[in-house]
C-alpha cells in the first residue's frame, strides 16, 4: 500500500505540471490577447527569477547582475534586428550573456558576500554607461527599432524558454553537479577540500543562469519595439528577481515561481486600478509581506497547511 501511495504521488507530481503546461499552451486559442501579453510578462519574470535562484539559491551569492545579462540579450536582439529567425536570435542573445557571465564569473567569483553583490551591481551600470558612450561617440547613433512580432508567438517562445529552464534545473539538481553546488552553499571551504572544483562549478552555474536571462531579454526586445541602452540595462530589473524570490520563498523550487507570478500580476493589477497610489499600496504590501511572512509565500502556505492538518488531527 505504501508503494502504491508513493507511485500515485509520483505520477501526480509528474502529470500535474504537464497538465498546466498544456493548459497554458492552449490559452492563446481562447483567452483574450491581452491575457497572453500579460502572461508573457509574468513568464519573463518567472524565467529571470528562477534562473537567478538557480545560482543564488544554492550558493547564497546574491547576484545583482540580472539586468546586465537580460540587457545583453535585449541588445543582441536590437542589433540583429530581425535578419535572423527568432529562435536563432534568442539563442545568440542567450549565448552572448553566457559568455559575459563566464568572463565575469571567472573574474569575480572569488569575491564573497557583499563584495560580490556590489560588483555585479556595478557591472550593470558600467555596461549601461559604456554602451551609451560607445553609441554616442563611436557609432554616432543611439536607439534602435525592433520590429514587432506576433504576441502569441512571443508567448510560446517564452513558454519554451521556461520549460527548458525547468528541465535544466531538474537535471542539475539531480546530478553530482547539483550536489557540488549545494556543498558550496553550505561550506565553500569544506567543499573545496572534498575535491569539488569550486570555481568551475560556480562559474558554469552562473553562466547557465545568465543564458536564460539573455534568452528572455532577446525575446522581450521584440515586445518593446524601441531599445536604447537606458531601456536595455535597467538597474531596477536586477532587484526584481531578488525581491520576487524572497517574496515567494527561496526554500522550495516553486517558491520563486509563485513569487514572481504573484508579484508581477499584483503590480499590473495595482498599476491599472490605482495609477496614482499604486506605489503606496505596493510598497505597503511589500513591507507587510516581509514582516509577516519572513519565509515568503512558501512559508505561509506551509504554515497554513500545517495548521489545517493539525486541526484535522485534533478533530479525529
Amino acid at each position: 500500500m505504501d508503494i502504491a501511495r508513493v507511485i500515485s504521488k509520483r505520477s501526480s507530481a509528474l502529470w500535474a505540471p504537464f497538465l498546466i503546461l498544456i493548459l497554458l499552451a492552449s490559452l492563446p486559442l481562447c483567452a483574450p490577447q491581452y491575457t497572453i501579453i500579460l502572461l508573457t510578462t509574468i513568464f519573463m519574470y518567472i524565467v529571470i527569477t528562477v534562473s537567478w535562484t538557480m545560482f543564488s539559491g544554492p550558493t547564497g551569492y546574491i547576484s545583482l547582475a540580472p539586468a546586465a545579462f537580460f540587457g545583453v540579450g535585449v541588445y543582441t536582439s536590437a542589433l540583429l534586428g530581425l535578419v535572423l529567425p527568432l529562435p536563432a536570435i534568442i539563442g545568440i542573445g542567450g549565448l552572448a550573456s553566457f559568455c559575459l557571465a563566464l568572463f565575469v564569473g571567472a573574474l569575480t567569483l572569488r569575491l564573497r558576500g557583499t563584495y560580490f553583490v556590489m560588483f555585479t551591481f556595478g557591472l550593470v551600470e558600467l555596461l549601461l554607461h559604456f554602451v551609451l558612450w560607445w553609441e554616442v561617440n563611436i557609432t554616432g547613433t543611439t536607439g534602435r527599432v525592433v520590429p514587432t512580432v506576433n504576441n502569441t508567438k512571443v508567448f510560446y517562445f517564452m513558454l519554451i524558454i521556461f520549460v527548458i529552464l525547468m528541465f535544466a534545473l531538474y537535471t542539475i539538481r539531480g546530478s553530482r553537479f547539483g550536489l557540488a553546488l549545494e556543498a558550496i552553499g553550505q561550506n565553500e571551504d569544506a567543499a573545496a577540500h572534498t575535491g569539488v572544483n569550486v570555481t568551475m562549478v560556480k562559474v558554469i552555474t552562473f553562466a547557465i543562469s545568465a543564458f536564460f536571462m539573455g534568452a528572455a531579454g532577446a525575446l522581450m526586445a521584440t515586445r518593446w519595439t524601441y531599445i536604447d541602452p537606458k531601456i536595455a540595462f535597467n538597474p531596477l530589473l536586477s532587484f526584481m528577481p531578488v525581491l520576487m524570490a524572497i517574496f515567494g520563498g527561496m526554500g522550495q523550487l516553486y517558491g520563486p515561481i509563485i513569487g514572481a507570478a504573484i508579484f508581477a500580476y499584483l503590480e499590473e493589477f495595482l498599476i491599472t486600478r490605482f495609477p496614482y497610489y499604486y506605489m503606496l499600496i505596493f510598497g505597503t504590501i511589500m513591507v507587510i509581506a516581509i514582516v509577516y511572512m519572513p519565509e515568503g509565500l512558501v512559508g505561509l502556505i506551509r504554515r497554513l497547511l500545517k495548521s489545517s492538518t493539525e486541526g484535522r488531527h485534533a478533530r479525529t
Binding site: 500535474a16 505540471p17 497538465l19 498546466i20 493548459l23 483567452a31 502572461l39 516553486y254 509563485i258 507570478a261
Partner: peptide, 15 residues
C-alpha cells in the same frame, strides 16, 4: 508535490 500544482492550477483558472 500537491501544493505546487494546486496553486498553479488555481492561478491559471483565476487568470
Amino acid at each position: 508535490s500537491k501544493v505546487l500544482p494546486g496553486i498553479l492550477a488555481f492561478a491559471v483558472a483565476a487568470l
